[in-house]
C-alpha cells in the first residue's frame, strides 16, 4: 500500500490496480464500440453481417433513399420521421421530467434531516427497479381496460376507453415515468448543497418567490439541471424497451430502428451507422454538459 516500501511511481501503481477493470471494460464494453464504427463503413452482407469492402452506403442510407425504379435520390422520409420522433419525444420527456422533477427534488431537499433520507429512498426504489417492470406497470395503468380508463369511465368523463397504448403519447408517458428518478436525483444533489441563507438574503432584498426561483435558485443549481437533462435525454434518445412495449412496433424510435437492422432488416452496416450517429449525439451532449457544468454556478 501507499507509504510502505520503495515508492513505485503513483501512476504505475494506479495503472496496475486499474488494469483488470480496464481490460474487462475494453473487452466487453468500450472496445466493441470501435467495431460498430468500422462496420458502419462496410458493405452489407448477402444475408447478414458485412462484406469487408469499404462502403459509404450505410451512411448514405441514413439520410437518403434511392428509388428502386428510376434511381432518383431523395431524403429518406421514413428514417427522418423516426429520428424526428425520437428527438421530439426525448426533448418532451426531458422537459416534462424537469417540470415534475424540480419541485420533487426541492421538496426532498427541504424536508427536515430526519425524514429527508426516507423521501430520497422513495425515489431510489423506482430508480433501481427494473425498467421493464416499470414499463409494464405504466402499461397496466394506460391500457384500454387499465386503471386510468376504468376510472375515467366510472366517474363518467368518458363513455368508451381512450386508446392511449400503442401511441406516441403512451411512449411519452412511459419515458417520463421511467426516467423521472434520473432527473430528480442530480437535481436533489445540487439542492442538497444549496445554501438556504441565500434565499433569506433574497427575501431580505425584496425579491418575490418567483424572482427568488429565477434569480437565485435556478442559476445556482444549474449544474444539477444540466446533469439531470443530460441523464434523461441520452437514455430517452436511445430508448428501446419503452417504445417497444408501449409503442407497439409501429411507433419506432432510433433504438428500435437499430434493432430492426440486426433482426428482420438484416442490414448490419446501416444499424452500425445509426448506432454511431447515436454515439456522436451522446458525445456532443456530454461535451455540452462538461462545458455547462464547469462554467455553471452563480454567474452561469
Amino acid at each position: 500500500m501507499s507509504g510502505t516500501g520503495k515508492t513505485r511511481s503513483k501512476g504505475a501503481n494506479g495503472w496496475l490496480l486499474s488494469a483488470p477493470a480496464l481490460i474487462l471494460l475494453l473487452l466487453a464494453a468500450s472496445g466493441p464500440l470501435v467495431i460498430v464504427v468500422i462496420y458502419s463503413v462496410l458493405a452489407k452482407g448477402d444475408y447478414s453481417g458485412v462484406r469487408w469492402i469499404l462502403s459509404g452506403d450505410a451512411w448514405f442510407r441514413v439520410l437518403f433513399e434511392k428509388d428502386i425504379f428510376d434511381g432518383t435520390v431523395s431524403l429518406a422520409d421514413a428514417n427522418l420521421s423516426i429520428f424526428w420522433r425520437s428527438v421530439k419525444l426525448s426533448l418532451a420527456t426531458t422537459l416534462i421530467t424537469f417540470v415534475l422533477g424540480l419541485p420533487t427534488a426541492w421538496f426532498i431537499g427541504t424536508r427536515p434531516k430526519t425524514t429527508r433520507a426516507l423521501w430520497l429512498f422513495l425515489i431510489t426504489i423506482p430508480f433501481w427497479t427494473n425498467l421493464l417492470i416499470r414499463t409494464f406497470a405504466i402499461m397496466e395503468v394506460i391500457r384500454n381496460q387499465g386503471l386510468l380508463n376504468t376510472l375515467l369511465i366510472k366517474i363518467g368523463l368518458i363513455s368508451a376507453p381512450i386508446q392511449i397504448l400503442y401511441t406516441d403519447t403512451a411512449v411519452l408517458i412511459g419515458m417520463t415515468y421511467v426516467y423521472l428518478p434520473l432527473m430528480v436525483l442530480p437535481l436533489f444533489a445540487a439542492i442538497d448543497r444549496f445554501d438556504f441563507k441565500l434565499i433569506e438574503a433574497g427575501y431580505d432584498l425584496y425579491a418575490s418567490r418567483w424572482q427568488i426561483l429565477r434569480g437565485v435558485i435556478l442559476p445556482i443549481i444549474k449544474p444539477g439541471i444540466v446533469a439531470g437533462c443530460i441523464l434523461v435525454f441520452i437514455p430517452s434518445l436511445g430508448a428501446y424497451v419503452t417504445p417497444r412495449v408501449l409503442g407497439g412496433g409501429k411507433n419506432m424510435m432510433i433504438g428500435n430502428f437499430i434493432e430492426l437492422q440486426f433482426g428482420q432488416g438484416q442490414n448490419w452496416p446501416l444499424g452500425a451507422a445509426l448506432s454511431t450517429m447515436l454515439l456522436l449525439i451522446v458525445l456532443v451532449s456530454l461535451v455540452v454538459y462538461t462545458r455547462a457544468s464547469t462554467r455553471g454556478g452563480p454567474h452561469g
Binding site: 477493470a21 480496464l22 471494460l25 475494453l26 472496445g31 466493441p32 434518445l237 436511445g238 452500425a272 456530454l286
Partner: peptide, 21 residues
C-alpha cells in the same frame, strides 16, 4: 472515462456492439 463509459453510452449501442463482437 473507460470505467464510467457504460453510464454514458446508450445501452442499445453497447448491445449492438457486443452482438457484432
Amino acid at each position: 472515462i473507460v470505467i464510467n463509459q457504460p453510464l454514458m453510452v446508450p445501452e442499445i449501442v453497447t448491445a449492438v456492439a457486443l452482438l457484432i463482437f
